[in-house]
Design a protein around this nucleic acid. Sequence first.
DNA 1: ATACTGAACGAATCGATGCC
DNA 2: GGCATCGATTCGTTCAGTAT
Length: 211
Amino acid sequence: MGVKNPQWTAEKIKEGFDRFIKEKGRLPKSAEIDELNYLPNRKFIERNFGGLEKLRGELGYRDTHFGKGKFRSEIAHRVNISGRNIELNLEKLLKNKFGEVFVHTEKIFDNTKNRVDFYIYSPSGNLGIDVFGTETMHNLQTNMSAKLIKYSGFLERLFFVVANNSFSQKDLDLYMNKKIRVLPKNAKIITIESLEQVLSDMKTYPNPLLK
DNA sequence: ATACTGAACGAATCGATGCC
DNA sequence: GGCATCGATTCGTTCAGTAT
């Protein structure tokens, strides 16, 4: 509400929305708004128009929330399928390396109901692995803050593996360094490539079934 | 029944900038 | 210098589908 320079009016913002619709066939989502130079920062919309959802409604758009209803449903389907594939792929990789009996899937720790996706037994030291496919920085932050609480009782070596091409190890290092709530010393966020590097240096137990 | 997951939106906070 | 505004970052809540 610039006192003397109300640069961004609802009408101006609607022009921006319509321009995006023309180009992409839908309204811009929260994070996308920040990247468009013909729209104000979304925080501005939240402060001055009571939020994105409200403004979309007042401007007459039918869909006002992209995290609910059919949109949410579509997301859940996609995420569940890709998440399952990511876990299955990594499980195969781990069992190839360490052998079936030395890879414990969904291992419970901490006398709670908390589970690690994978727990590896190795002469080089046991370790836990949590994989996920988060593709945006914002969701990485959200997920990590939840995971750090969940894993606060996990004291052994622990890798959070981001299984996609959205982040390089450099991106993840930068994030870890800038993070306010620092990761415990035993934990690290790494890419699949980095994990493969780590695994290649690890020793394996002999297969007890082949004695 | 309950817990988990990642995406969307929101709140809180901090630093930079600009105006008086 | 003091104040308001805005952008950026982090953390929190809600949500739908699925597995346990």
